[in-house]
Write a protein that binds this DNA or RNA. Structure first.
Length: 812
RNA sequence: GCUGAUGUGGCGAAAUUGGUAUACGCACAGCACUCAAAAUGCUGUGGGAAACCAUGUGGGUUCGAGUCCCACCAUCAGCACCA
């Protein structure tokens, strides 16, 4: 085989010289914006996962280009974040130094992969020319009322010394280090993503995304419909509003439960219960997230001494506190209906709270103590006999008339906590002044530069707080000495808008030109891992909608189509990790076989959406395939022309050619690279068979070989460029259009019709593709085997699917 | 517990969406070339002597089911005291 990594190098240099990958914003062709989730430059090198994500996606971009689109296929770096900072803490190397170095290495490697990126359109989120606009966005959100600060219990990782987003807490533990997460109250910045909960849910319907990812988002948003009901305390001084999806069980309320953290508790607790309540609260605050959320843990709680009045029937019920009630879901208060809710039942059983049945099953009398389904109302006064569905409407309407209830919708989604007590991030552009209070940094003063020389070792204090130079400033409003916000922004803020910046990446006057952003967006196809189904993808959708409402963009959604590549596991079937020692380095393979063999192997050996355990057994086979292509090209150059006739043989070959073009286009469009390559192999086999026969029509042969090179060009860009030039071509194969399908050639030649009798395959008959049903039937009946089966039997039905199958139904 | 996905040869996998199940490869075997080996090329390769039987299991719809419907089983993933 002649192809090697030297071939890659030769053409990479040539492409730089000719500017092959330059993006032309003035092009009149229709735009096609496709991109991969940008990479995080934490490691020094591209790993196998990057290759598997980027190389096939690059082939897809190249394919769209051949199809006549003005393809925009940018790449950048998600450069802020914890790993670089943790690495710095470990080694003492400054995050900026390591990050910029890693970016250089990764850029070089992406070029060596053959990525068709135009680096003039790129973003690096840690650079002031980018984070200036991240800060600008913060300012805009603040002015639009979508950014606010509040004291809130946050997830605190005592090992990383930082606050974590809800999404970063896995089973009550820190996503990164596995330490148990504890609750801590801090004053934090939030983005009001909950304002968009309904739209985020509704617009999922518009998206060409994997259903599973939509489900994750639906789940994450967690919409539930129900009613709010206001109880009064016995003394009439306080309102306790609860949210319930089961108002039909309102008459069965035998108790109220408040979240222990609730401020209302202080106001209603009676003196003789105060001590027990205080003790219970201390006990609760000591619990880690993991214990608090465990469903296995027995329910606990304590009585406050106070009572509430049920507005529907004036029942007097005790008010308790219990830690199974969460402060930040619903209203933080719950009405307890032990007979019809499992958790309430468990709680009531333990503390001897009465159990009052108000719904019975539709089928029987309902002797069970606990019944959680919908049914028929009983023991509910005038509501008796209604179904649960009816009762919910009627009771809510009655409550509304009384002014103590209404229909509401609740979401599990919480506002997005964006403050991080970390160094390596975009500083939050806020100044605190003793006189003026919270002041956002004026746009003309942006960016708020991240200082280089800062002590960033973690000790629970934000690193920036330790830099006097950074902290001390003047109030933009009154000019008096003031201090800066010391926290930085969650990196998900940086990545929530980068796709809008790419097309106008060098704009230093504005975040992006409005016309450009609207022309290029939304992204037509976005490719990346499904681990971002909940976080990055929902934040980016939110940011797009917020920008739309502020008038900066004219579209609703950032990514029209979404593809998740699968995960390449270690050879042992486990997720690759350094600690398991099962990592596979792409570099050795690329060095040995060349980038294109490696790309092709990744695409051929795995289902793109599925991935799987790494196995390099087949990689030699790919070099064999390359050698066969080389041999074919050489033969084509050498072979002499025997005939100019077009017989059935040529017709068959031309049909195969057109089938190949058709199915490969469909396969690549759908990210089914494995089958696309399989089709190209069949085509190569077909051409070889043709050559091995006696007479060769060179015009047909050259046409087919050129087609083969073209359809492989997006998949093996260096190798095909080389073979194309060997055929004597002087312009790049990457400027060629995707071959057109010739319908006439596609229909020509012979076809084989499978013949079934009573649904079982009995024979295959080769006929010309132009024959009619009658003619085919006639030919089939002449077939010996078929004729024998039809003897003494009556054909009652003939089903012919043109070009596909013939089924004869016979009766004995 | 809830939700979703997946289940096809010795292996990676395919099947134009209801129309020849196992394409394309790997591995294996045989043959050719060679003194020999490697490389390469060709041929074969689900089971069964055959009728036939085979797409996790059992039913169903249909002329025809890997594909659609019902009920199970197994594996994986996400969510989970959400009121």
């Amino acid at each position: 085989m002649n192809y090697s990594k030297e071939t890659d190098k030769k053409w990479q240099e040539e492409w730089i010289k000719t500017g092959l990958n330059k993006y032309d914003p003035e092009s009149k062709k229709p735009k096609f914006y496709t991109m991969e989730m940008f990479s995080y430059p934490s490691g020094a090198k591209l790993h196998l996962g990057h290759w598997f994500n980027f190389a096939p996606a690059d082939s897809f971009a190249r394919f769209k280009k051949m199809q006549g689109f003005n393809v925009f296929h940018p790449m950048g770096f998600d450069a802020f974040g914890l790993p670089a900072e943790n690495y710095a803490i470990k080694t003492g190397i400054h995050p900026e130094d390591s990050t910029l170095k890693n970016i250089d290495t990764m850029k070089r490697q992406l070029n060596e992969m053959g990525g068709s990126y135009d680096w003039n359109y790129s973003v690096e989120t840690c650079m002031p020319n980018y984070y200036k606009w991240t800060q600008w966005l913060f300012v805009k959100l603040y002015k639009a009322g979508l950014a606010y600060k509040k004291e809130a219990p946050v997830n605190w990782c005592d090992s990383c010394k930082t606050v974590l987003a809800n999404e970063q807490v896995i089973d009550g533990c820190c996503e990164r280090c596995g330490t148990e997460v504890v609750k801590k109250k801090l004053s934090q910045w939030f983005f009001k993503i909950t304002d968009y909960a309904q739209e985020l849910l509704d617009d999922l319907d518009k998206l060409d995304w994997p259903e599973s990812t939509k489900k994750v988002q639906q789940n994450w948003i967690g919409r539930s419909t129900g009613s709010e009901i206001t109880f009064k305390t016995e003394d009439g001084k306080h309102d306790i509003t609860v949210f319930s999806t089961r108002v039909d069980t309102l008459c069965g309320v035998t108790c109220m439960v408040l979240a222990p953290e609730s401020k209302l508790v202080d106001e209603i607790v009676t003196p003789d219960c105060k001590k027990a309540v205080e003790e219970y609260r201390v006990q609760t605050s000591k619990l880690s997230e993991i214990d608090r959320l465990s469903t296995e843990r027995p329910k606990t709680g304590t009585f406050t001494g106070a009572y509430a009045i049920n507005p529907i029937n004036n029942d007097k019920v005790p008010i308790w506190i219990a830690d199974y009630v969460l402060e930040d879901y619903g209203t933080g208060f719950v009405m307890v209906v032990p007979a019809h809710d499992e958790r309430d039942y468990e709680f009531a059983k333990k503390y001897n709270i009465p159990i009052k049945q108000v719904v019975r099953p539709k089928e029987d009398d309902g002797k069970e103590e606990l019944f959680t389904d919908d049914g028929i109302l009983i023991n509910s006064g005038k509501y008796d006999g209604l179904t649960s569905e009816e009762a919910r409407d009627v009771i809510t309407a009655d409550l509304e008339k009384m002014g103590v209830g209404k229909k509401t919708v609740n979401y599990r989604l919480k506002d997005w906590l964006v403050s991080r007590q970390r160094y390596w991030g975009a500083p939050i552009p806020v100044i605190y002044c003793d006189d003026c209070g919270t002041v956002v940094v004026p746009e003309e003063d942006l960016p708020v530069m991240l200082p280089y020389d800062v002590e960033f070792k973690p000790d629970g204090i934000s690193p920036l707080k330790k830099s006097k130079e950074f902290m001390n400033c003047k109030c933009p409003k009154c000019g008096k000495p003031a201090t800066r916000e010391a926290d930085t922004l969650d990196t998900f803020v940086c990545s929530s808008w980068y796709q809008l910046r790419y097309p106008d990446a060098n704009n230093d006057k504005e975040i992006f030109n409005k016309e450009t952003v609207n022309k290029m967006n939304p992204v037509d196809c976005y490719v990346g891992g499904k681990e971002h189904a909940a976080m990055h993808l929902i934040y980016t959708r939110f940011m797009t909608k917020a920008l739309r409402d502020m008038g900066y963009v004219d579209f609703d959604e950032p990514f029209t189509k979404l593809i998740h590549q699968g995960l390449i596991l270690g050879p042992d079937g486990n997720k690759m990790s350094k600690s398991k020692g099962n990592t596979v380095s792409p570099d050795e393979y690329v060095d040995k076989y060349g980038a294109d063999v490696f790309r092709m192997y990744l695409m051929f050996g795995f289902d793109y959406r599925k991935g799987g355990p790494w196995d390099d057994k087949g990689i030699e086979a790919m070099t064999k395939y390359f050698a066969r292509v080389e041999a074919l090209v050489q033969k084509t150059i050498d072979i002499k022309c025997d005939t100019t006739e077009v017989t059935l043989k040529e017709e068959d070959l031309l049909r195969l050619k057109n089938q190949t073009i058709k199915s490969m286009a469909k396969n690549i469009e759908d990210f089914q690279f494995n089958t696309a390559i399989a089709r190209s192999m069949e085509f190569l086999n077909g051409i070889n068979n043709y050559i091995n026969d006696e007479k060769v029509n060179k015009e047909v042969l050259v046409n087919c070989v050129e087609t083969l090179l073209k359809v492989l060009a997006p998949l093996a860009p260096h190798f095909m460029e080389e073979e194309w030039s060997l055929l004597g071509k002087e312009t790049s194969i990457h400027k060629e259009a995707w071959p057109e399908i010739n319908e006439k050639e596609l229909q020509g030649g012979n076809i084989i019709i499978p013949v079934q009798v009573n649904g079982k395959l009995k024979a295959q008959v080769e006929v010309s593709s132009s024959l009619s049903k009658e003619e085919i039937l006639e030919a089939v009946k002449k077939d010996e085997k078929v004729a024998r089966l039809l003897e003494n039997n009556e054909v009652v039905k003939e089903i012919y699917v043109p070009g596909k199958i013939l089924n004869l139904v016979v009766k004995k």
